[in-house]
Every structure is written in C-alpha cells, then in structure tokens.
C-alpha cells in the first residue's frame, strides 16, 4: 500500500503536513491550558477574597480591597504570560479556550473597582477611591496591561463582548450585595446599587444583540434590576431610606 501511495494518487507529504499542523495545534493548546489552569486557580482565590465584601461593612472594606488588589496583581502577571503565548497564534483561533477565565478576571477587576479598590492613576494611589464607579474597558485593559478591542492587528486583547459579559456578572453580584448590605445595616448602598444597575441596564438596552450568549445573559439583567428595586421598595416602605 505504501508503494502505491508514493507513485499513486496522493503525495504522502500532503498527509504528513496535515499531521504536523494538527500536532502543532495540539501543542499550542496544551501550552495555553497550562497557563489557564494557573489563572483559574488564582481567579478562585480572588473571588473568595471579594466575597468577603458581602459580610464586611463598607467602612471596614479597606483590608478586603487591599487583599483583592494583591490577588488581582498576581492574575495580571498570569494574563501577561497568557498574552505572550496567545499572541503567537491567530487570536480568534484559540479565543474560546481562555475567554471564560478572562471574563472572570475582568469581573474581579470590575467588582473591586466598584467597591472602591483599584484606584486608577491620577486619582491618588493608596487612598480609597470612591465606591460605585464603573471601570471602563480601557481602564480594565490598563490594569491588565493588555490592549482592548484591537482591530488593526492580530494579538491578544480584551474584546467588547468579554467586557460586557463581565459587566453582567457584576450586576448579578451587586444584586446579591444589595440584599447583604441591608443585613449589615447599610441602607444607603442598595440605593447606590439600584441607580448604578439601572444606568448599566439602560446602556444594555441600546445594544442590538443577536441571538447569542450575550443576548441570553443580558436578558437576565432585568430580573436583577427588579430584585434590587424590591430591596429599595422594602426599605422605603419602612421609611428606612430618605424619600427621593
């Protein structure tokens, strides 16, 4: 048979080349997976630290934020390594491998930023930044030290879709925080969350989403908006917050 194929229909090099392509591909994937495993573990660590925000009054949040910032810093380093390996191949070829982990990192940054951590340059580092702010995709890129929304070249970056996905996760988390703030006796924060989430929701409403995962998840925002509104309603009904 081997003889036939040498003189016959197909050049054996064709399939040798194909095999090489497949093997190279597998190797790149293995490299990416190795680094992603680290990012995933660090991500869990960061989430666990940020979770303490649900049981910590806003006034005592500083140590939590400091710990979260340190943990995020570690992730930034890993993302740098990921970016290095990922930029060797076409971005969208392997994007599916890391997008979930990258979304988690972005979410951690957004949440930490919202809680008042991760003061951007110019705001005076070390001092607690104001809570309730939304880090833009550019600021997230700056923190992660990677480009965002690249169009002119093929390299690792953060996409708009990833940022929006993380933003939806942030809304879900804030809905939970609204309830837990009340438990902590903080009746102001739900109002702040309510306004913030409504503003973000209004933003999502002007997007023309197709029937993709982003649309399906953004459909859930309204339930979270309602959940938070219910908290505000409960509080105002009992005169626990000043009437607007």
């Amino acid at each position: 048979m081997a003889n036939v194929s040498e003189t016959g229909m197909l050049d054996p090099r064709i399939f040798e080349d194909l095999q090489r392509k497949i093997d190279d591909d597998a190797e790149t994937r293995d490299q990416l997976r190795a680094i992603l495993q680290t990012i995933e573990r660090q991500g869990r660590q960061t989430q666990s630290i940020l979770s303490r925000a649900h049981s910590t009054p806003a006034a005592h949040l500083q140590p939590v934020l400091a710990a979260a910032e340190a943990s995020i810093k570690e992730q930034v380093e890993s993302i740098g390594k990921l970016s290095e390996i990922a930029s060797k191949g076409p971005y969208y070829k392997y994007n599916g491998l890391w997008t979930r982990d990258v979304q988690n990192v972005i979410f951690a940054i957004l949440l930490c930023g919202w809680l008042g951590g991760l003061a951007m340059e110019g705001e005076g580092e070390g001092k607690a930044a104001e809570a309730g702010k939304l880090l833009t995709i550019e600021e997230v890129g700056q923190i992660l030290n990677v480009p965002v929304n690249l169009k002119d070249r093929d390299a690792f970056h953060i996409t708009i879709e990833e940022y929006l996905q993380s933003l939806i996760t942030l809304i879900e988390e804030l809905a939970r925080l609204a309830i837990n703030s009340v438990t902590l006796g903080d009746y102001q924060r739900p109002l702040q969350i309510s306004q913030f989430v409504k503003d973000v929701h209004a933003g999502f409403q002007i997007l023309n989403l197709k029937n993709d995962s982003l649309r399906r998840r953004s459909d859930s925002i309204k339930y979270n908006v309602k959940k938070i509104e219910d908290v505000v309603y409960d509080l105002s009904l009992r005169n626990l917050v000043p009437r607007p």
């Binding site: 939304l134 503003d199 209004a202 933003g203 409403q205 002007i206 023309n208 197709k210």
Partner: peptide, 26 residues
C-alpha cells in the same frame, strides 16, 4: 421613555460606542 432614561445614564456614550462596534461585527 427610553431616551429619557438613556440620556440620564452616564454610561451612554460608552454603550453607544459598543453598539456601533457590535453592529459592525454582526
């Protein structure tokens, strides 16, 4: 109604930008 809500949101310019990008993509 939507526009009243929209104009009050500070994130509108950002989302308008996203919308244009996503439209191009779609």
């Amino acid at each position: 109604r939507r526009d009243v809500e929209a104009s009050s949101s500070p994130f509108m310019p950002m989302f308008e930008n996203f919308r244009d990008e996503l439209d191009e993509h779609h």
